[in-house]
Design a binder for these strands. Structure first.
Length: 656
RNA sequence: GCGCCCGUAGCUCAGCUGGAUAGAGCAACGGACUUCUAAUCCGUAGGUCGGAGGUUCGAAUCCUCCCGGGCGUGCCA
């Protein structure tokens, strides 16, 4: 049992006498927010006093008098309006540290009732190269899988790839008409990506051209409205002014977005028309969008040739994805894409129709929710199924075949509406006890506050992103090592460190934000040699390894559990206390699936260690006992960082 | 129109079901390397928590309104 849990346990009897359900009150026992308040603080006396109509300080004192914590705490103190401050006795901390010494789990015990989680993450469209947008889902999803497993749950990671959608029709169309045979033989994935982009560009070109008049018209309308609203606002009296001000600002926005839309449309058209080759292709394929959709439809209908193409394309696409996952060290237990569920979709719609949940509306089969008026479309008017249908089939499969208790969807927060409909429909459909959770996250932004793009406006490919992270890290590794009196790393070691630091930096930058917020992608920040970055933890790890190297000790040869721990200085005590809090950092992560609580624990741990490193020499410890004790702390610290980072999918290195 | 989200230090962000004097990192300024890796540590400075009300012993946190921004919203996924 961890320290916090045992303190709560001791408060339980006193609270039980006062209220029926002491659990919410016990949650108010927390690590102290300030060292002056001790190590832990109990905040329950105030709300409880209100509930009982009593004086909070007196109540706190009464509880303090009846609680038995003497064997491991200093005397409890009542402070302020009724806070109870708890300071663990140093000798108890020493005992606890000795108990967890040498333990990779730092005393964290697996959950008593494991659940089976299916974690749905990454989920790229296989026909397109992965881009920066897939990074968050992949990194957060992987971190959650690792953390859930560590906690003792059963986890099935599932990559729900898009391998059956519209984009395959586009590739098939491109393959038929625009294939470059040499490049297809030599670089199939690159060629498929090129075909996808080409067909997409030509389709967009035609669509944009035909939408141009409408864009111009609505921009004109917006400008007219802006003029009208502005004119009216000038002569309005106070009562109307506010309303009109709103109208003006809305009209302003409308004009701005109209102008932006027009400009980007013109740019898209120019991009094609400025190229002789593209213009010719566009002219030769005026119906390209429709024809590409028909290729998709033929594929779904079982057309032999299209299926053959699909079977030919898919392995190369998957191979390309696998390269990225291998490099990121992300593993999936299952990769069940849309195509896997295809045979089940018709039954899903039938079942919904039988239950009277799905009805025909404007030719489409829709599930209407009693609460919202937005339909959940499970079959389009052209007969094709949608991702709503696939997701419902997936829910059914995960319950019936995988026997999941809970499904986590690590998906962009912009899809929250879809998931709300999915979960609600599933419940009404009769999915039973299966729990759902949309683990949503914000958009990756560029420094301009817009979604992260290359200078030319393309999405950024994930592989080139990883390459850049590593090459930037390499420059930093070189600089640091060259600055030393004698460089300590070989060329090979530098390359390895750069890989670990570069990929760690990119992952950590993502994970250390609260996942809900959008975050600004910034190379300099994520690879900074100072501050709250993966590098800081990795460096702390390398330094602790350096201590053992210096003393010519092999950590694996030492039985740390037999060495008495002595916490003589503030730095040692703080480090010890910090190391004992790993468990509640993990509880925090899993309470709402927020990995940033683990990054912040790791940062505190590394920081506390750095202070210890600064003040408490191991090599020059005052006595042999003290040196051994410090080695225990060092070993625990190394395990803490290595284990904690590993739960985030981040590696460490012994030298850097 | 309807729905969801956001606004905290110059910048990037934490702040858990309301708790003590609102915290980090970066940037700025000043210190610390004959000493286990200075990719470090110590210190200083920096805030009307978008605004106004309300709920109460106590509000960045809960409620209402206002201002500003984002996203989603019937046949893309």
């Amino acid at each position: 049992m961890n320290l916090l849990a045992s303190i709560r346990q001791r408060f339980l009897p006193a609270l039980k006498d006062l209220v029926e359900d002491p659990a919410p009150l016990l949650d108010l026992v927390r690590p102290a927010q300030d060292a002056r308040f001790g190590d832990f603080q109990a905040n329950f006396a105030m709300p409880l006093a209100k509930q009982l109509g009593r004086n909070p300080r007196e109540l706190a004192q009464q509880i303090v008098d009846s609680v038995d914590l003497g064997d491991f705490c200093e005397p409890l103190e009542v402070a302020g309006p009724g806070f109870i401050n708890v300071r663990i006795s140093t000798s108890h901390l020493e005992t606890l540290l000795q108990q967890v010494a040498g333990d990779d789990r730092l005393g964290v015990v697996p959950v008593s009732s494991p659940r089976h989680f299916v974690v749905d993450f990454s989920s790229p469209n296989v026909a397109k190269p992965m881009h920066v947008g897939h990074l968050r889902s992949t990194v957060i999803g992987d971190a959650l899988c690792r953390t859930l497993r560590f906690a003792g749950h059963k986890v099935t990671s599932d990559n729900h790839i898009g391998d059956w959608g519209t984009q395959f029709g586009m590739i098939i169309y491109g393959f038929r008409h625009f294939r470059d045979e040499t490049s297809w033989q030599e670089e199939p994935v690159t060629e498929l990506a090129r075909l996808y982009r080409l067909v997409n560009q030509l389709s967009e070109y035609h669509a944009t051209r035909s939408s141009l008049p409408e864009l111009t018209r609505s921009l004109d309308a917006a400008r007219t409205e802006l003029e009208a609203a502005t004119a009216e606002a000038e002569v309005a009296d106070d009562a109307d002014r506010k309303k009109l001000k709103k109208r003006v600002s809305a009209a302003n926005k409308e004009v701005a977005s109209g102008e932006a839309a027009l400009h980007s449309a013109e740019a898209a058209i120019a991009a094609v028309e400025n190229s002789a080759a593209l213009s010719r292709q566009a002219a030769d394929h005026p119906q390209i969008a429709r024809l590409a959709r028909e290729e998709t439809a033929r594929l779904h209908a079982g057309d032999e040739e299209n299926l053959r193409f699909w079977n030919e394309f898919l392995p190369c696409c998957l191979e390309a994805l696998q390269r990225v996952y291998d490099r990121l060290d992300v593993q999936f237990d299952l990769t069940l894409g849309e195509s896997f569920y295809n045979p089940r979709l018709a039954d899903v719609v039938d079942s919904l129709a039988e239950q009277g949940m799905a009805v025909l509306s404007d030719g489409a089969m829709c599930v209407f929710s009693p609460e919202s008026n937005a339909p959940f479309i499970v079959r389009k008017s052209d007969g094709a199924f949608t991702y709503a249908t696939t997701d419902l089939a997936t829910v059914q499969y995960r319950r019936d075949e995988l026997r999941a208790d809970e499904v986590l969807y690590v998906v962009d927060k912009r899809q929250s509406g879809h998931f709300q409909q999915l979960f609600e429909t599933s419940v009404r459909w009769g999915i039973g006890d299966l729990q759902f959770r949309h683990v949503s996250f914000g958009t990756v932004m560029g420094s301009n506050g817009r979604p992260y793009k290359t200078r030319s406006g393309d999405t950024v490919g994930l592989e080139s992103l990883l390459d850049e992270a590593v090459s930037r890290a390499r420059r930093i590794v070189d600089e640091n090592d060259d600055r030393r009196e004698t460089a300590s790393l070989t060329d090979e070691q530098r390359a390895r460190v750069a890989e670990i630091v570069g990929l760690g930096g990119i992952k950590y930058a993502d994970l250390h934000h609260n996942r809900d917020s959008d975050y600004i992608f910034d190379w300099d920040k994520m690879l900074a040699t100072t501050g709250d970055t993966a590098t800081y933890m990795q460096y702390a790890y390398a330094r602790v390894c350096g201590i053992f190297r210096k003393l010519e000790l092999d950590r694996s040869d030492i039985d740390f559990s037999r060495i008495p721990v002595l916490l003589r200085t503030d730095e040692e005590r703080r480090l010890g206390l910090q190391l004992l809090s790993f468990g509640y950092a993990l509880d925090g992560v899993l309470a709402e699936y927020r990995p940033h609580l683990l990054t912040s624990w790791l940062f505190s741990t590394a920081e506390t260690f750095s202070q210890f490193f600064d003040k408490c020499s191991v090599q020059k410890a005052e006595s042999e006992e003290l040196q051994k004790s410090r080695l225990v702390l060092c070993d625990l610290m190394a395990r803490a960082i290595r284990t904690g980072l590993s739960l985030l999918g981040i590696d460490v290195t012994e030298t850097m």
